[in-house]
Design a binder for these strands. Structure first.
Lengths: 319, 319
DNA sequence: CTGAAAGCGCTTACAG
DNA sequence: CTGAAAGCGCTTACAG
């Protein structure tokens, strides 16, 4: 790899002048600019980003933390983040926090900082109060918490409403399958569901299920199949398992009960029946996260959380 | 962020000594080592990786190129790569080449090199002969080509054989749905299928289908549904679309025809019938790619391609 | 408009 | 075992 010195020597100027040219400084005569640019092209000189970073403390690199790439939801968020970063000339340093424990997060942030990243995009987690991060940071997949962290929040309130409206007033008892309420996003959505049902005077059952075993979770729900005519599942995978379990029990969907998933996984199109669900627009979540981070990096602060709209998708598991 | 100078001053030694200690050099007295280590812990000093990289030309960063994160297959490969890199203390700089055109690839490689990455893991593409890469490079999702590129190759020969054996000698005419044969991996697999069928004296039909429209591809295949009793689909998504199209035409699987996918997508478990398929072990592909790259970086060369075993998965779309 | 010099935070010969 | 110095490849005041 050739360096700025090589260019300077070949063009017969100082390295300072070359530096001015590759940084688009206006204080260069057109003649020398032309001369130097020709040499740059000729030897295909690429400035060493590492040296630049060392001086400028700007790496044009963003650190990203994701819980799990096997989950399409997160994969699409990354996709959205990248689509923005690439356009703006930023690179992405990506880490996976398989079990999403806090220690892992802090380690990753440390690693990022060693590499002088300009900002961090991470799934929501509790930032220890002691950690006073100078690095701009955005959290996605977060609940709508009002602190001074920039949060990208799926509109869980509307998500709950949309689920209920997908039921088309055809439900008389609703089973809400959910993950533990200590998860803030779960709480937001369940509260919204409960609110809506109360408004409509429709009774409901809350069923907390395991976080890692959708098959068992389906059994837990269908044990009580005589007590509801609609199920709102944790997400699409959980809904798909409920379909399988219903087949085993010879229950028809939506005739015996309507079923609603969450996330609009590709899967929804291929089950029988296809699954009505809520699209969280993960790509848009990612894009929004990236835009907000770049804003923060460029000094544009805004204390508001970004609320991302959700879209109900009607398929054959509801009327 | 504190620097090596801060540590040196606080510990009353030179920066050279501090450097020796953070690099585990043996030539340091236990007393000074202890003294310095205490300071390091006290002020939570983290060496600046960027400065280290500038001097050493080793960044402990790997550049990774993926065609598409929305495809679970690639997402799992990344997962495998990361699991190894993280263990070895490497970071991953990731780029997405949405349309996988060659120019994109070369741009990404350029970007990587500006950041002094130590090596590259990329999906297979034609390296221009002019490009003489000094950087270690490994290609995954590649055909078994014999040049001096380190390639990670799915065992497409066995993949073809496994498809045929999933049919359990119950097929008399086989429809092979495939992408264009100009794709080397496609060619490998189709050749293997044809070989096997010839050996067994089973007639077959080759049907080339669109690369982007699985639904249309399903229609193209089922137009000829009276002419076969087994379909080997491009992959699991294509197989799932064939199931949907068969439902529309009131055809039963496997009674009217057996069906085989490829990739072992989660989807396979949730269709009716569930889909028999071939698992390419994408996580293992990723792990192998990472291991081979680290070997290359550490000077352990091997001209052989790594062949990754595939695993047939029997479900209900075959007998 | 241009160049010599200092400095970003490290590492590593070199000398002692 | 330890430190002063040079250097990795850049950028940016400073002086002219």
């Amino acid at each position: 790899m050739s360096t700025i010195k090589d260019v300077a020597k070949l063009a017969g100027v100082s390295v300072a002048t070359v530096s001015r040219i590759i940084n688009d400084s206006p204080n260069v005569s057109p003649a020398t600019r032309k001369k130097v640019e020709r040499v740059i092209k000729e030897i295909n000189y690429q400035p060493n980003q590492v040296a630049r970073t060392l001086y400028q403390k700007k790496s044009r690199m963003i650190g990203i933390i994701i819980p799990d790439l096997n989950n399409r939801f997160y994969a699409q968020i990354i996709d959205g983040i990248q689509s923005i970063l690439q356009k703006k000339g930023y690179s992405a340093l990506i880490s996976f926090s398989a079990n999403s424990n806090k220690k892992n997060y802090l380690n990753f942030i440390n690693e990022f900082q060693k590499n002088n990243i300009d900002g961090i995009i991470t799934a929501a987690f509790d930032l220890p109060a002691t950690l006073n991060l100078a690095t701009p940071l955005v959290m996605y997949d977060s609940a709508n918490i009002d602190d001074n962290v920039a949060r990208i929040v799926s509109d869980n309130i509307k998500g709950g409403k949309d689920c209920i409206s997908l039921l088309q007033n055809q439900a008389t008892r609703v089973m809400i399958q959910h993950w533990p309420l200590r998860l803030p996003t779960v709480r937001e959505r369940v509260e919204s569901l409960v609110n809506e049902l109360n408004k409509l005077n429709i009774p409901y059952i809350l069923k907390k299920v395991s976080e890692n075993d959708p098959e068992k979770a389906a059994q837990e729900v269908l044990k009580k199949s005589n007590r509801f005519d609609a199920v709102i599942a944790v997400n699409d995978i959980y809904a798909a398992e409920i379909i399988k379990e219903a087949q085993r029990r010879n229950l028809k969907i939506p005739a015996d009960f309507q079923l609603i998933g969450y996330d609009n996984n590709v899967l929804c199109e291929y089950t029988t029946p296809t699954i009505s669900t809520i699209d969280q627009q993960p790509k848009l979540i990612g894009q929004t996260a990236a835009r907000r981070l770049l804003d923060l990096i460029n000094g544009k602060k805004s204390s508001q959380n970004s609320i991302i709209n959700v879209i109900p998708i009607k398929r054959n598991s509801t009327y």
